[in-house]
Simulated assay, not measured.
Amino acid sequence: MAGRRFVVEADGGSRGNPGPAGYGAVVRDADTGQIIAEAAEFIGHATNNVAEYRGLVAGLRAAHGLDPDASVAVRMDSKLVVEQMSGRWKIKHPDMQPLAAEARAVFPRSQVTYTWIPRERNKDADRLANEAMDAGRAGRAWEPRAGAAAAPPAAQPAGEALPAPAAPRAGWAAPADLGSPTTFVLLRHGETALTPQKRFSGSSGSDPELSERGRWQAERAAEALAARGTVQAVVSSPMRRTRETAEATARRLGLEVRIEDGLRELDFGAWEGLTFAEAQEQYPEDLDAWLASAKARPTGSTESLATLAQRTGVARDRIIARYAGKTVLVVSHVSPIKTLVRLALGAPPDAVYRMELSAASFCAVQYYSDGNASLRLLNDTSHLR
């Protein structure tokens, strides 16, 4: 059955280039011209080109959320983005390459076409981008106009970079005024054969199973959670070691394990299976760069800590939306859990290097309806003693 036909108009802007930046995108019904979805976001400090690409990705995802089988005609006033996405111009800038890859991953290439249009014919996307920048300057999130349709959530292809997660708001509020928070009980998986040796074990490696000690740790964690009796849902990374850890608790509580791809471990590329010392000996420059910048990628990897934070933040928001006001066991890995903790604290990216996270340890974060987050527990291993 043929899908629907959409027109995506997207734009982005930066006041300063680089400077405070935002994007806007609309999805139109190709037959009627009616706007059926809008998306916009303030993205912080960025260039015009980054904002334009972010607008394109948001527009495509909004269209995908409406109909993944649709044919999409993209119209933008950015000659650069149109020519690069059409394959006529090479993408040389390192900031543009992953964004272009994100855009290409949303739909099969055969379903999308790109056309340049003058700025005066892209007024709706331009308006949304400016609304997003104005909202960011005022310290608030962009909201659609009354009667306008917000973009629907779209499924995220595995392995792609995602929109930047919103930073937690600062301030104090009485929990009674905000309703019940959504509580994440964050559980790192139990040990595998690689864990005691402190070897890199990410999403592109051997996907090891739990060791005998790891299974014991998973059962102890399950006992502790069953005794508390507060967990109402179980969500896990798709990796084998996390699924096995999650299933131990799910069996005791009579719950199903829901898989969330955004919770998978970082892709460590050529470092998979190596110790830190081995990686330092074989790839010294790459390792130093990775430790110095959240945008650097492990040798041969598809993602950085920055893109990990983006997909983890989106996964967080999906879980909160599905289980609002509930307590959720979230079983994941070192990097995603540390990232969720640092996002809750509003800490800089290098804060992940200043946290200890033991195998089968608990952390806990509560999320309130006003956007605030509260770290309640970090690296608790008392159930393993």
Results as ranks from 00 to 15, higher is better:
63 A>Q: 05
112 V>I: 07
31 D>G: 10
88 R>S: 08
114 Y>N: 02
28 R>F: 05
94 P>L: 02
13 G>F: 12
110 S>G: 15
107 F>W: 04
28 R>I: 03
23 Y>N: 07
92 K>Y: 05
63 A>N: 05
58 A>N: 13
80 L>S: 04
81 V>K: 05
75 R>D: 04
78 S>N: 05
13 G>R: 11
65 G>F: 08
25 A>N: 09
25 A>G: 06
120 E>W: 13
119 R>T: 05
35 I>W: 07
45 H>F: 15
36 I>D: 08
60 L>Y: 15
78 S>P: 09
53 Y>M: 03
46 A>S: 11
49 N>G: 00
49 N>T: 03
79 K>Y: 06
106 V>D: 09
72 V>P: 00
59 G>Y: 14
115 T>L: 09
12 G>L: 03
24 G>K: 07
74 V>T: 03
11 D>F: 05
15 R>H: 10
35 I>H: 12
90 K>C: 02
52 E>I: 03
49 N>L: 01
113 T>C: 04
87 G>I: 03
14 S>C: 05
81 V>F: 11
102 E>R: 13
113 T>K: 08
78 S>M: 08
98 P>G: 05
25 A>W: 14
116 W>K: 10
9 E>G: 10
122 N>V: 05
12 G>M: 02
53 Y>Q: 01
9 E>V: 08
38 E>N: 10
81 V>A: 15
106 V>Y: 04
96 M>Y: 13
103 A>G: 12
119 R>L: 04
7 V>K: 12
102 E>F: 01
38 E>I: 06
69 D>I: 02
44 G>E: 07
70 A>T: 02
114 Y>S: 00
49 N>W: 00
44 G>W: 07
76 M>A: 15
8 V>T: 06
118 P>E: 12
32 T>K: 14
